[in-house]
Design a protein around this nucleic acid. Structure first.
Length: 582
RNA sequence: GCGCCUGUAGCUCAGGGGAUAGAGCGCCGGCCUCCGGAGCCGGAAGCGCAGGUUCGAUUCCUGCCAGGCGCACCA
């Protein structure tokens, strides 16, 4: 392999982390069973000539939004109306007539314009409870990924500064998406691309040099478009502690590269530490410079030339992005002989494909969305499927303080860092806030609110549910009781509305994981957890778990333990703690 | 001018071709001799505008309006 890892994280996840024994979800099993039974019914209806049609509509059974519409519902009769040329309700009647119920179906009703609603015997909901207990930490995992290799590249901040709110959002999103994909059966690599080459590094060097010389009494201004942050000064101070003024009298090139190497290493170490504090551990830190050093960039340029995807104009080498649907062509190698960032990025993505990733997920800020069409064009020119590259465009974060927008800019040196954020609102709250909304929604982060309302944070609501359950389990322990074996529990004693709602919600978890993975949507997990916690709180306020009725207590103990496990698993996907006490 | 994202409750946001659109905060009114009140129960309040596709649109399409972000031989 010609690429190299800059640094392998010693705490990285074991490679087998993505491999879970797959057990199907109760909801999914019954849902697909109903679909099959419905398909059989349609077949019977056609064979008997009651329904005539040429093309089969898609048969789907869904969980209706309204509880009053049954446990599951199908819209097949409505879809049949046109091709079968009959009234939807009539079609529904025929389908119901020919429908063979199976184990759990109690009754089937036709409702509204022709929906077929399935009402199941209550017992089906209880099936999830022993499953949660026996699967434990892997409850909710599904195997839709089947071990496919996926890479999630995120944050990839310029290593020349500190991490700001946009990076923080990317970190929370990317890490949670990676965790969810692992739980959904993918083999996932978390990667950070280090932009340690090019113009900004030049600029970084000039800024460092100016600050260094200033510290040594020379009046050299920081370039106007340079880095003006205090952190640059700090780097120069540590540099000076180590090397003194020995670099004042050497050539500018030598001075700058020494400063850059020193400061970059320092910055990267810090970035890595802050991300680690935020709960993010990368598998790979990938250096852009390594692509230049290894010749991968030039090699890729040659490849594109050979493919006839380039041309020269005004002394520069251009990529014919317009041949692949982009708006305009792009420069790969400038007339001064230096390659562009885009050229390195093409080499980088080629490298990703060469490493065997079947699904490549990049998380970028909205300010880079214009880059998407040309990157996809490049992937295609390289001979790969552009659909294998999925770019999540994350809308920018707006920070509010004192009711006013805080301008964030690296160059001006004014921004609230991830480090400060963790200090102010805590890792758990910050992680939750960043993933509770979808990536393509603008994010207003009110610092005052986050600080002032720490106790009102939804994440505490969820954590409190977990802590409450732990408290019950402590009670159980103090009274000398123990968690019953689900095999010996009569779940039919759970008849209360909140008990059934809670068990039903637990059964939904694998489906939520699958949906979150498919849609790359961690906010679904955040919302699910909030709803689950709400049901637990409602249940808790209405019913006692530990009572004199032993059989009922046993059933409720399994119910809350299953809830605890599910909360813990879900919070784990978001890297949020599940505390036993608060 | 062109392109991408977004307009859902007073505020911040979920949801999403179906049958009664959700949550938090804020507001109003209730609940602790009881496993943790960081909790629970109840109430008021909403799909930017106009067309189109569809049996059915808040959801998909088009236009308009509003906000954000892009449109370098920068990254």
């Amino acid at each position: 392999m010609y690429w190299r890892r800059v640094e392998k994280d010693e705490n990285s996840h074991p490679p087998v982390r993505g491999l879970f024994i797959h057990m199907s979800s109760v909801v999914e099993e019954i849902r697909s069973g109903l679909e099959k039974a419905l398909a059989d019914s349609l077949q019977v209806s056609r064979d008997s000539g009651q329904i005539r049609l040429d093309t089969l509509p898609e048969i789907t059974v869904e969980v209706p939004r309204e509880k009053g519409h049954g446990d599951f519902a199908a819209n097949l009769a409505l879809l049949l109306a046109k091709p079968a040329r009959m009234a939807p309700r009539r079609a529904a009647e025929i389908l119901v007539q020919n429908f063979a119920g199976g184990t759990w179906v109690e009754r089937v009703e036709i409702a509204g314009p022709g929906f077929i609603n399935f009402y199941l015997k209550p017992g089906w909901i209880y099936l999830a409870l022993p499953m949660v207990i026996s699967e434990g930490g892997s409850y909710g995992s599904v195997n839709i990924g089947q071990g496919r290799k996926v890479q999630v590249e995120f944050v990839s901040a310029n290593p020349t500064g500190l991490l700001h709110m946009g990076n923080a959002r990317g970190a929370a999103l990317g890490d949670s998406i990676a965790a969810i994909l692992i739980f959904a059966g993918y083999h996932v690599t978390r990667e950070f691309y280090i932009n340690d080459a090019g113009n900004q590094i030049e600029n970084f060097g000039l800024s460092l040099e100016a600050r260094y010389l200033q510290l040594n009494g020379q009046d050299i201004p920081v370039p106007e478009d340079g880095y003006h942050g205090e952190d640059i000064v700090a780097s120069c101070i540590s540099f000076r502690e180590k090397y003194g003024d020995s670099y004042t009298n050497v050539g500018a090139g030598e001075r700058r590269s020494a400063l850059v190497a020193f400061a970059l290493a320092e910055k990267l170490k810090f970035i890595k530490k802050v991300l680690s504090d935020f709960g993010v551990e990368y598998d790979t830190w990938f250096s852009e410079q390594s692509l230049h050093d290894s010749g991968a960039v030039l090699e890729t340029m040659e490849f594109l030339k050979d493919q006839g995807c380039t041309y020269e104009k005004e002394g520069a080498l251009w990529f014919k992005a317009t041949d692949f649907g982009a708006d305009k062509d792009e420069v790969l190698i400038r007339s001064n002989g230096l390659s562009t960032y885009f050229a390195a990025d093409i080499a980088y993505h080629r490298n990703k494909f060469l490493r065997g990733f079947e699904w490549i997920i990049d998380i970028w800020g909205a300010d880079h969305h214009g880059h998407v069409p040309r990157m996809k064009a490049a992937v295609q020119a390289l001979g790969y499927d552009p659909a294998a590259l999925e770019v999540i465009i994350m809308q920018l974060v707006r920070l509010y303080k004192g009711g006013e927008i805080v301008r964030m800019s690296k160059r001006s040196g004014q921004f609230v860092t991830l480090e400060e954020l963790i200090e102010e609102v805590g890792r758990d709250a910050a992680r939750y806030f960043f993933v509770m909304r979808s990536s393509d929604s603008h994010l207003d982060f009110d610092l005052d609110l986050a600080r002032a309302e720490t106790n009102e944070n939804p994440v505490y609501y969820i954590q409190y549910a977990h802590a409450r359950i732990c408290s019950i389990l402590r009670q159980l322990n103090e009274q000398g009781g123990q968690m019953p074996d689900p095999e010996n529990v009569d779940f039919s004693l759970l008849k209360e509305e909140y008990e059934l709602a809670l068990a039903r919600k637990l059964a939904d978890f694998p489906g939520e994981v699958a949906a979150a993975a498919t849609g790359l949507a961690p906010q679904r997990i955040a919302r699910y957890l909030h709803e689950l916690a709400g049901l637990l709180h409602s249940f808790y306020n209405s019913h006692r778990v530990i009572t004199q009725e032993q059989d009922l207590s046993a059933a409720r103990l399994v119910l809350v333990e299953a809830t605890r496990i599910t909360l813990e698993n879900g919070l784990g996907l978001l890297a949020i703690n599940a505390p036993e006490r608060m």
